[in-house]
Design a protein around this nucleic acid. Sequence first.
DNA 1: TATTGTTATACTCTATAACTATA
DNA 2: TATAGTTATAGAGTATAACAATA
Lengths: 151, 151
Amino acid sequence: MTTTPFLPTLRELTSAYQAFEAYSAVHIRTLDLTPAQFDIIATLGNTPGMPFKELGEKTLITKGTLTGVVDRLTDKKLVQRVASLSDGRSQTVQLTPQGVALFERIFPDHLAHLQRAFVELPPDELVNLEKSLHHLREALVSARNNIKATS
Amino acid sequence: MTTTPFLPTLRELTSAYQAFEAYSAVHIRTLDLTPAQFDIIATLGNTPGMPFKELGEKTLITKGTLTGVVDRLTDKKLVQRVASLSDGRSQTVQLTPQGVALFERIFPDHLAHLQRAFVELPPDELVNLEKSLHHLREALVSARNNIKATS
DNA sequence: TATTGTTATACTCTATAACTATA
DNA sequence: TATAGTTATAGAGTATAACAATA
């Protein structure tokens, strides 16, 4: 059985992601936010807020950790908890007016910051990259589900 | 000025990397290692060891943190420090015999684990993905260096 | 003076599990 | 009984800076 070498691809995936993280963090740190906190702000931006559970699923932060991250953002007056009307167990997390202001101030800057890295990449390569990454993710997720189903 | 939309690509990059991490972690956790510890073992495998500084550069772990990670692996008898002959300030970190044994036992398993996710991906897509990721990384690194040079 | 690695500090994230209050 | 979120705990990574030994 022949094996296509996938290890170099995984190495590039890791390097590219880490380069993105490092580059992104340059800007995020100037805002006095951690990457996790920025992730929450960016996820809540342009939404009316969302339940804890959904926020955790979108940011891949587990509920126990999320409580702490949201606490810290609450201390900074950037987000707030609102009791859900429909479910007494549920809390909606939303940006405060200060949080909205921060989001609106920093997100365009963040995009501009990122865009500087992309100006030289050929558009068609960008599109292909997006598709291939999507396939790769699907393959990884389905392999993971196979394991879960088996064990 | 027209802008090629790069945000979807970055989202896919993040999702794909996180899927990889999650899938990879399934196996790593069964070994009683953290991802950072596994990274060190994998980096030291098939080498005669390397100085602290180089190990930090390869794993992207800063020196202060690296001391702690190496301490924990030393407690587990998987790596050891050896004073460098050529530079009195420098420590070489290398796998112990137990570390080598672990590496030789787990690395093939790890590859097999990963390969399960790749069997369905078309080989040519894998090759293109590798190239495009490489370009993307270069773009991000050079954008970052531009900032450093400017500030 | 600059560099290697250690130490110390304070914070943040992670994983896990027990707990509460609602459903 | 199950679910949403909180609390508690122990461990681990991060950033930063001061420090000792050596170059």
